[in-house]
């Protein structure tokens, strides 16, 4: 037995965890803020094509989307190429003009993002473009992924 008893360290060994909820909450709030829950359900399939010389749209609020692609029929089946704006498929192309006109009067700096399936044909895309011209929404963006 040694004469001098080794002093036991009287600091606690455990990592203090009392601040953990705060850290987690901070992370939680960060993710809550950046999260954009998908607000529309896609009724058409859009596999985006790729391009190299692309630009970013910084102002998300200005964007309005138009989806063009084969209609999803379920069970892995796809129908004809259709146009979707907001939540609905477009039956009458003339109505695109009215819808987009209403949007541009609300937000004059509107950018229309065309999300077109890579296998779609240009005919339908250009029909939509013609309607956009008549609606006065001239700023468009062909949504593509970045080709690296």
């Amino acid at each position: 037995m040694s004469k001098f008893k080794k002093k036991a360290a009287n600091t606690k060994q455990a990592v203090p965890t009392s601040a953990m909820p705060d850290i987690i909450f901070m992370l939680l709030i960060f993710f809550m803020v950046v999260t954009v829950l998908r607000e529309v359900e896609l009724l058409v399939r859009v596999n985006k094509t790729e391009a190299r010389n692309i630009e970013r749209i910084e102002q998300r609020r200005l964007i309005s989307y138009i989806w063009i692609g084969p209609e999803i029929l379920g069970a892995g089946q796809f129908g004809e190429t259709r146009v979707q704006i907001d939540d609905a498929l477009v039956d009458d192309f003339g109505s695109i003009r009215q819808v987009m006109y209403d949007k541009i009067t609300e937000e004059p700096r509107l950018i229309v993002s065309l999300r077109v399936d890579e296998e779609a044909e240009m005919g339908i895309v250009s029909d939509v473009q013609q309607e956009l011209r008549h609606a006065g929404t001239y700023r468009i963006n062909y949504s593509t992924l970045e080709d690296i």
């Binding site: 809550m32 999260t35 630009e55 468009i140």
Partner: peptide, 28 residues
């Protein structure tokens, strides 16, 4: 509880930036 919520938001989050080719359409 906070972890559970955190994991939920982590899974749901898609930080997708919109990229594409910008164009200007001509007037009708």
């Amino acid at each position: 509880i906070a972890f559970l919520l955190l994991v939920f938001f982590l899974v749901v989050t898609t930080i997708d930036v919109d990229t594409g080719i910008g164009m200007q359409l001509p007037p009708p």
